[in-house]
Design a protein around this nucleic acid. Structure first.
Lengths: 330, 330
DNA sequence: AGTTAGCACTTCTTTTCTTCAAGTGCTAGT
DNA sequence: ACTAGCACTTGAAGAAAAGAAGTGCTAACT
């Protein structure tokens, strides 16, 4: 693959990203300063390498998934975006009154707006968070609310009807024991400690300790489960893409976006920006997902942009990189 | 309008609901035991009254909005549904361990499944709920979480960074004052009491009382705002309807369903089951919204089914009626 | 007076054909 | 190694034709 061929691939990808139309040889004559026949030869070669495809026998060329991949890995240069947009992001990020997660949400809103793609924010259940406090609030004779707070300020609550045989005071007492012994414990370890450290203590002091234990176990279980949140911004942006101009495709992508379980699978394992094109995305063959993780001050999660395969890679990568750097710089 | 004509209208509506195809005169000959010409005459008459429409000059007839309305008000009989489905609902409703709102959610899930329409549950911000308790949890020097709990067991929290000039202890003290004075106050009255009863007390005991007041005012404000929740079940069901088989229509309805402000406007004022057909729905000219309110034990809200105009009225009305009766019986 | 048979007329839908533009691959020549 | 030229494909768009469904109206029937 020589320089001209690389240049050709780059132009075809970028052209297709812009126009959504297969690229023909004639239209590139001026840019590449050679004849259409030469370009056709090169195109045929690139196709033989698997970087280009035809939609039908006599159409122009379209990048293949490997073509996009080659482009992303070797040809693309992250593209700076307008200072105006950067400024917007910076303003949000430097607002110290905002909770981190809110700041991220707002930034992704702006990124969705700039790019016209859909953003997903996955707040990971951070098992590093530590228990700060547990409160028991009796609502009436039978109803109790447990309020759980972590060292990062997250609050969850669990409401339960307790069986008549249990005295609420016993739950309150047990709660004091838990506060005395478990404050500072990472969420991931709560369950085990509850079983092996707390249960024996409570068993010695409380009559119906088994029911009480079940109550607390359920409360903590819910806690760790609920803590994985999913947010979207620009959820319907992807529908603006011309590739989603068919009822069935729209229905398909919509129901995938509604499927929280599927969304949760989008999680970055490694550092840096990851790009998953088409099949690779494991989400939908027609989309690209660009994602990265962030981690700071007990907050931890994944942010992702989901758009068509012919996504403006350069722009999106630049934006995510910018956000990630800013977050992790602090 | 004679008996046969009413019967004709009924059959046309029900036929159209089932088949989504304009109804022609010939197809009804057997059912009405008269000739197609007679039926055509009657159809023309019903059309002149505004109950039927044609999609084009020589098509069969389709019910108009007023036609549906007449059907709903005068012709339809609520249709019992399979005992199996009723049983499912009853099982959920009689499960005493479930919070009311969860039970409603689960019921609506089932109703969505049975009907293939979309359900919306609007938890109204119930200003009748009373404050049960306020807790202040300091997270670190600058960060504080306020946890607010009502007599129905709802919990909300508000996290804030406080300015360095404020001593956290002062906030804690103020919180005690609030607990002493405001517990039992309906949420709707909290703001006023905060301003006229609490402020003077705090002002006399706390140095930076103004900042502290702002903190609590914000916390309570968020509380009353957040308390209006919107849930969906079967959100994409409406896309299964054949009338949503065009990209633009799908996009239109999707973005309307995403628009929480618009959704919140769906609120029943009066008792009973309300049916809003097409334009009347103020939501989308192609849908019908059937809704009703519920109210029990401090929980209060609206449940609604949203589907195409040719909705299975009889079924949906029966289901909502059933659910409403059950809830309010207790 | 209410009902029915019959027929001309509309309108939409579906299918088939035609034409057109875009683009390719290949051959032969530079 | 590049280019000019040409035959050939293919999909898209439009026109024409055929067919299906259904109506309105007139005139006859009970």
């Amino acid at each position: 693959m020589n320089d001209r061929q690389r240049e050709l691939l780059k132009i075809i990808v970028e052209n297709y990203i812009k126009t959504v139309k297969p690229v023909g040889s004639k239209s590139l004559v001026k840019k590449l300063k050679c004849s259409s026949a030469t370009i056709r030869n090169d195109m045929a070669y690139l196709e033989s390498l698997g970087y280009l495809e035809k939609t039908h026998l006599s159409s122009g060329r379209v990048p293949s998934e490997t073509g996009y991949k080659y482009y992303v890995d070797n040809l693309m240069k992250p593209k700076e975006i307008s200072g105006d947009d950067v400024l917007k992001l910076q303003t949000i990020l430097s607002n110290k009154d905002l909770e981190v997660s809110d700041a991220i949400l707002k930034c992704m809103e702006i990124i969705s707006e700039i790019t016209n793609y859909t953003s997903i924010i996955l707040g990971k259940e951070s098992k590093d968070q530590k228990l700060k406090q547990v409160n028991i609030v009796p609502i009436d004779n039978r109803k109790v609310v447990a309020v759980l707070i972590t060292n990062t300020g997250h609050v969850e609550n669990k409401q339960t009807m307790i069986s008549e045989s249990i005295d609420i005071n016993e739950i309150v007492k047990s709660c004091e024991i838990i506060n005395k012994n478990l404050v500072g414990t990472p969420l991931g370890e709560i369950n085990a400690k509850l079983e092996y450290e707390i249960k024996p203590i409570i068993a010695s002091k409380i009559k119906q300790y088994e029911e009480v234990m079940i109550f607390f176990q359920e409360a903590f279980n819910d806690f760790t489960f609920k803590r994985s949140d999913v947010f979207f911004t620009g959820k319907t942006n992807i529908l603006k893409q011309p590739e989603y101009n068919h009822p069935d495709k729209i229905k398909g992508i919509i129901s995938k976006l509604e499927n929280i379980e599927l969304i949760k699978k989008i999680e970055t394992d490694n550092q840096g920006i990851n790009i998953y094109i088409g099949e690779e995305s494991k989400f939908d063959e027609d989309v690209t997902i660009i994602k990265t993780s962030y981690k700071l001050k007990g907050e931890e999660g994944t942010i992702a942009i989901i758009g068509p395969k012919r996504m403006e890679y350069a722009k999106v990568v630049y934006l995510l990189q910018f956000l990630k750097n800013y977050l992790e710089r602090e």
